[in-house]
């Protein structure tokens, strides 16, 4: 609570006091405050005008290379250029990951299908049993 009145006091210090040798630091502070306020005032009008027109989304232009996540076009196969093939390992790792995720997707679906079929057969078993229980006496005899 004591800080606030202090700052206002600083602003209100007279020029003469601020010019004193030991007041150098507070003088700088006051000047900076004033400058900040001024610049804020100047730019606040312009920024709002510009923002009204441009909206709040920033659009960054990029190459199609980044959009499609392409690979580098320098490739070597069958040991033609070992140096290049060393650099290609990163891409092949990425490819493995993609393929693995694809495989996993399929197995997940298959898992679900398989599981649901198990549930169904179990269900059928119980259905049959319950039916049998009721029919048994009449059918057997």
């Amino acid at each position: 609570m004591e800080e606030k009145p202090n700052t206002t006091q600083n602003v209100n210090l007279t020029k003469g006091t601020l010019e004193m040798k030991f007041m150098k630091k507070s003088k700088d502070k006051v000047l900076k405050l004033l400058e900040d306020e001024e610049s804020r005032e100047i730019y606040s009008k312009e920024i709002t005008e510009e923002m009204k027109r441009a909206g709040n989304i920033v659009f960054i232009e990029t190459s199609i290379f980044n959009c499609k996540k392409m690979i580098e076009g320098r490739l070597s196969f069958g040991g033609m250029n070992p140096e290049i093939e060393k650099l290609m390992t990163k891409d092949s790792q990425r490819l493995d990951e993609i393929e693995r995720s694809k495989e996993k997707d399929i197995s997940d679906i298959e898992m679900a299908k398989g599981y649901s079929s198990v549930v169904e057969t179990m269900q059928n078993k119980f259905l049959k049993k319950s039916k049998k229980k009721f029919k048994k006496p009449s059918a057997d005899i």
Partner: peptide
Amino acid sequence: FVCIIGPGLKRNDNLPNT
């Protein structure tokens, strides 16, 4: 509030955020 645009698109200056 950042959108990346590739070829074939441009910011529309007449209408914000399009």
